[in-house]
């Protein structure tokens, strides 16, 4: 397990539990599952775009299709790219954990 490595920039394991050092009173965690129909999509690329549409971060979903970002309160767009197709959704996040369902479908 890679866990969360704050020394680097690589995407940490998306299925790992939140590290004990993450303070949910301070952190804005955006997490969820990418699905095509009812099926989770592993290996999808999930991009976090800010309120201006600018790229902020990208992770690859876990075997269960899960993704997770550490952001800041505000409006965000999540965009998924996968072999099964692409999809996006816009959300409003606050401190603590925000759960997001992200669907992909062939164009």
């Amino acid at each position: 397990m890679a866990g969360v490595d704050v020394a680097g920039c690589g995407a940490p394991d998306q299925a790992a539990p939140l590290p004990a050092s993450v303070d949910l009173a301070k952190e804005t965690v955006i997490t969820g599952v990418v699905r095509a129909g009812d099926e989770p999509v592993p290996g999808a690329y999930v991009r976090l775009l800010d309120a201006g549409g600018e790229f902020t971060a990208e992770v690859v979903t876990s075997a269960a299709g899960e993704f997770r970002f550490f952001a800041a309160p505000g409006k965000w767009t999540l965009r998924a790219l996968s072999r099964q197709g692409n999809g996006d959704t816009t959300i409003s996040a606050d401190r603590g954990v925000t759960q997001v369902a992200l669907a992909v479908a062939a164009d």
């Binding site: 704050v6 995407a11 590290p19 050092s21 993450v22 997770r68 970002f69 550490f70 800041a72």
Partner: peptide, 12 residues
């Protein structure tokens, strides 16, 4: 507003 990319915890 952030100290690290948004897929990483921020405290540093």
């Amino acid at each position: 507003r952030l100290l690290a990319p948004a897929h990483l915890p921020q405290e540093q």
